[in-house]
Each structure stands twice: as structure tokens, then as C-alpha cells.
Amino acid sequence: MSDRIALVTGGNRGLGRSTALALAEDGVDVVLTYRSNATEADDVVTELEKTGVRAAALRLDVGEVDGFPAFAEELRTLLGRTFGRNRIDHLVNNGGHAAQTRLGTTTVEDVDRLYAVHFKGPYFLTQALAGLISDGGSIVNLSSGLSRFAGDGWSVYGSLKAGVDQLTRYLATELGPRGIRVNAVAPGPIATDFGGGTMRDDDGARAFMASRAALGRIGEPDDVGPLIATVLSERARWVTGQRIEASGGTLL
């Protein structure tokens, strides 16, 4: 049985799913969260259990901070009942969504939801769960290549992810006395359903972004999930407060 447990938000698909499976390959038990697709989440739990680790799924909307105290208690109960533990070792703030925000068409509701999911949510979820993270544990916040380079229509999303980069440094400083490491992983263009699946399904968009990458292709989820698992692990025990970009050298 594993002596480590990770919580991965948005672990039912895309980068979250890849991260959960990579953690399982390292022998880490996983609790994943999902917002709306319980069947999809259950399928990932089954995949994880086939590797020999223990796994469970909990519903969580990372943009609804008022529900975080109840979620923390639900997680505490699950840990005791299913894993025989009262702490997690790793937290991955991955859950999110895409919304373009061009001047002249962006609504206040668009910006409020992006802020709630991509900055306010990770901040307050980390605060709510800090007491459940073991000393010596680790956190990865999902950033984006768009916090370094500007993509047309992604002004709010990219700016919030730049905020996540800075928040990561502050959290690394605040949690460092407990031996908890905090880093950000910033994916570039990845073939997932993010943003309507453009990088997965649109051949023209894929070819264009591949031409802007030093490695000459679009990334796949499994280019990023194993990296996140490595950053969480003891293999990266002397790394904290860093933004680590996984973009294949996009727009260098």
C-alpha cells in the first residue's frame, strides 16, 4: 500500500487525468475531483485501481469557494474511511476552464468566473486544505504558457495565470517552514478538450502552433502529467517557488 496520497482537482479528464495516472505509476494513491461528469470520474478511478493504488472521486466546483469548508470535511472523512489516513501529501490545483476575452465582447460575468476558477479558487482551496497537507508535502498549481506569451483573445486567462505564478512564490514562502514545496507547471498548447478542443481537433491550429514550437509539435497530456508527478515527488525535493514551463519551446 502507498504511504502517499494526492488530491488532483479536475482529475477526470485531460491534464488532471494524465497527472493522476502518472502519480499512480509512482505508487501514489489518488483522490480526484470532478465538477459535473461523475461517470467520467468513476472511469478514471477504475483505471487507477487497476494499477494497484487506491483511488476515489469527489465532486467539487473549484469556482464555488463557499463549498470548500464542507469539501475539506468530506475529504477528511474519506481519507479516514478509505485510506486509513488523516492527511494528504500532494495537492494539484488543476481544475479549470477556458473562455476568450476580447475587448468589446467580454462580460463582467466572464471575468468573474475566470477569476473565481483560476485564482480565487486555488487560493482558497489551498487555504482550506492546508491543515490536511502533511509537513514535507508538495503542491503544484497549474499555470499556462499564456502567462509568458500573449495569445489573441486570452488576456484575462493569461493574466490570471501570471497571478498564479506569483501566488506560487508567496505560498512557497508561507508554507516553506513546514517543508511544503509549492511550484507552478505551465503547459503550452496541449491536445485536450480545453478551449473547445481546438488544439486536439483543428488541424490548421495544430499545424500553426507546432510551427511556433522548438520541438515542432503540439503537446499531449502525457507530456505534462508525468512532469507534474515528478515535481510533486521527492525527486524534486530542492525545488520550490518555481514556474516550470512545459511547452515544447513554444514562442521562445
Rank of each mutant, 00 (worst) to 15 (best):
D3N: 15
R4T: 12
V8N: 13
T9R: 09
G10A: 15
G14H: 12
A20M: 02
A22L: 10
E25I: 11
D29G: 14
V30L: 14
T33Q: 14
T33D: 13
T39E: 14
E40Y: 07
D43F: 04
V44M: 10
E49T: 15
K50P: 08
T51A: 14
G52N: 09
D66Q: 11
P69D: 08
P69V: 14
P69I: 12
F71E: 08
A72S: 03
L75S: 05
R76W: 09
T77C: 01
T77P: 03
G80F: 02
G84V: 06
R87D: 14
I88P: 06
H90P: 05
N93C: 12
A99P: 01
G104P: 00
T106S: 02
T107E: 03
E109C: 00
V111L: 01
V111M: 09
D112Q: 03
R113F: 03
A116S: 11
V117F: 03
V117D: 07
G121T: 02
Q127A: 01
G131R: 00
D135P: 10
S143N: 07
G145K: 00
G145S: 03
L146T: 15
L146N: 10
R148H: 07
G151T: 13
S155Y: 01
V164A: 07
D165S: 09
L167R: 01
T168M: 07
R169N: 06
Y170R: 00
A172M: 12
A172I: 13
G179Q: 00
R181Q: 05
V185A: 04
P189Q: 07
I190S: 02
F194W: 13
G195Q: 09
G196K: 03
T198A: 14
T198P: 03
T198G: 04
D201N: 11
D201C: 02
D202K: 05
G204S: 06
M209N: 10
R212Q: 12
A214G: 05
G219M: 04
E220Y: 06
E220C: 03
E220V: 10
P221Q: 04
V224M: 13
V224E: 06
G225A: 05
P226S: 11
P226D: 13
L227P: 12
W238K: 11
T240A: 09
Q242H: 08
I244L: 15
A246P: 13
T250S: 04
